[in-house]
Each structure stands twice: as structure tokens, then as C-alpha cells.
Simulated scan of single mutants.
Amino acid sequence: MLIDTAMRLMGVGQLLLMALVAARSGAPAPIRRATIALLVCVAAYLAIVSPALQLWRSAAWPVIQIFSLNAPLALWVFAHLIFERPIDKRLFALALGVTLIDWMLFTHALYVTHQRPVAAGAVQHGIAFLLAVHAIVIAIANRGDDLLEKRRMFRLGFVIVVGVQTLGIVVVESVYDLLRTDIWLMLLQSGTALIAILAFGAAMLTANAELLFDKAAPPPPRAPLSPAEHVLKQKLDAAMAAHIHREPGLGIGVLAGKLGVPEHRLRALINQRLGYRNFSDFLNSHRIADAKAWLGDPARVDLPVLTLAMDLGYGSLAPFNRAFRDATGTSPSEYRRAAILDPEKG
């Protein structure tokens, strides 16, 4: 039991140190807050399930418990932000609401009934399972978008490891009695968690903050293109001029195959030489340029925005609207109105 407690306390300390590093980083505020929330929530869970610490006797138990219960939701939000996926606010509100209700039931059980709320535990396990699975799916589905290989693998591994840990905890706590404290289960959980925390913590604390997010610092000046890079850029420019960016579902691996070049070379060119953070930004820059031209073309004034979005390679209207607003600060319909009615301002 002493070894289990020591490993948990080491893990909590490392997580809080990582949260401090994230708080002092130059990451965008939403990603910084999500990272801190995830790390603190995981630390709360590690501490609250330790039988030796007996935090249920502490007046701080309700606060620690609510952070602990929200760890899967924090992972879900973190995965959306780190892979730049839009968060469904209705799903977020639903998950948060259910978690808060479970927290109240757990608190009532501790201080009033002194009986474990079985139904609340089952619901919480179900929510945690679904959130963790969805976070892993997001990470895998968007694993190829980031152009920096080291950061791409770190982000993917970070979300998958935390997600798998969450799934393991849910399965074990569902199969075994939640209040059982078999030493082998406790050691397995604390040991695997500590190994993962130390590995990711070492990478995060010793490497650049860009492993998790982009710094706000301006990019360094770029050296002239090498002959090989110049030839590759000519191939890329020719492909863009042939409107390859309008192909639905175009990924960097597919584009590299069409150009007949290794994927890592194309990633390096787009990121380090052309200055794009990820492949989606590069692709959207060409698609939105076409969209602006089409929306301002009187001959296409009757072309529905949905048709335009599909012709540009977007799978639906929502991602096109989001990308267009991010690039221009306005919706496609508003842009068309301004471009047609007042060409000088449009």
C-alpha cells in the first residue's frame, strides 16, 4: 500500500508540474485552459481513489471529487481543441450536466445515506467510456493533419494513452466492486499511470512547448529553398493550379502520392517553408481563395452556397462555413452580398 501511495503522489506532483508549465506557456488561452483542466482532473482521480490517503475524510473531498469525475470530459474537450475540431455545445452541456448530477448523488451518499449510489456510478462509467472512445476516435481520425512529425505523434500518443487509461479504469471499476482495494489492482493502476505520466512529462518539460500546441512567437526567418525543395514546390504549385485541392477527402498522404514524393518531405515543405501550421490550413487557403472568387462572380450569383462548398471539396456546409468565417471574419452569404452589391468593399 505504501508503494501504491508513493507512486500516486509522484504522479500527482508530475501532473501539477506539467499544469504549471502549460499555464506559463504561450499557447492560445482555450488550449492552455483545457490542458490545465485535464492534468488537474487526472491528478484528482489519482489521489481520490487512493485508500491510504483517505480523502473522503477531508473537507476538500467534494472539490477533489468533482475534478475527478470530470476527467473524461476534460479529455474530450482537450482532444477537440488540440486537433482543432468544433465542440458540440449540446453534447458538452449534457455530459457536464450528468456529471454534476452524479457528483451530487455521490456527495449525498457520503454525507447522508452512507450507501454507494450504484445507478450514479453506472451512468458515470457509461459517460466516461463514451467520451474516452470519442476522444480516441478524434485523435486517430485527425492524426495526419499536423505537419510537424514529432508534435503529431506526441499529440496522438497523449490522447490515446489517456483515453486507454480511462477505458481501463472504467472496465475494471465496472467489473470489480468500486470500493474494492485489491493491492494488485491499485498497483497496476498507479504503476501504469506513473509510467505514462513520467514519459509524457519528460517530453513536455524538456522539449519545446510545441509538442502540445503552437507558441505565439513569430516564426524564424526562412532560408532560401534548396534545389530539391524548389522542384517539389513547383510540383505542388502545378497541382494546386490544376485544382487538386478541390478533391473531397484529400489528405497529405494522398497528395504526396499524387506528386510522387515522400510524405515527410511534403510535410516539411508546407510547414517549414510555406509556413502553414497544419495541412487543413494549407488546403483551406486554396479552397477559400476559390470560394471568394466564386462568391464575387456575378455569373455564379445563383449558385447555392451548399453546391459551392461541395464543389470545393467540403463534405458538408458546416465545415465550409466555419473555415470561411475563420479566414474572412464573415459568412459566405454575407461576403457574397458585399462583393456583388459593393465590389470595391467586397
Rank of each mutant, 00 (worst) to 15 (best):
L156C: 09
N142K: 08
I169S: 05
V170W: 06
L179E: 11
G157P: 04
Y176G: 08
L131G: 01
L131H: 06
R152H: 04
E149N: 12
V159M: 04
D177Q: 11
V161T: 10
F154K: 08
I138G: 00
K150Q: 14
R152M: 11
I160T: 07
E149H: 15
G144L: 12
V170T: 10
V171R: 05
S174I: 03
I140M: 09
V137W: 13
I138E: 07
D145E: 15
G144H: 14
V170S: 03
V172P: 01
H125E: 11
V159E: 01
R180V: 10
F154V: 11
I140S: 05
R180I: 10
R180H: 08
L167F: 08
F158I: 01
V164Q: 02
V164N: 00
R151A: 15
H125S: 13
V175S: 08
G163L: 00
K150V: 15
V172L: 15
L178Y: 13
Y176R: 12
A139S: 05
A132D: 01
V170R: 03
Q165P: 01
G157I: 01
A135M: 05
V175M: 08
A128Q: 02
L131V: 07
Q124H: 15
G168F: 04
R152Y: 05
R143L: 06
V172I: 15
G163T: 04
A135V: 01
L131W: 01
Q165C: 02
H125M: 13
V161I: 10
R143F: 14
D146Y: 08
R152A: 14
H134Y: 10
V170Y: 02
H125Y: 09
H125L: 12
L178T: 08
E149L: 15
Y176E: 15
Q124R: 09
G157N: 09
V175R: 10
L179K: 11
A132Y: 00
S174Y: 13
R152T: 07
L178Q: 12
L148K: 13
V172F: 11
I127K: 06
G168E: 03
I169Q: 05
A128W: 00
L147Y: 03
A128T: 02
A141Y: 07
H125F: 06
V171Y: 13
R152N: 09
V171W: 13
V172T: 14
R180T: 14
R180Q: 14
A135W: 00
R180F: 07
K150H: 14
G126L: 09
I160N: 02
I138T: 08
A132K: 01
L147D: 00
L179R: 11
I138H: 02
F158V: 06
G144I: 09
L167R: 03
G163R: 01
I160S: 02
Q124K: 12
A141Q: 13
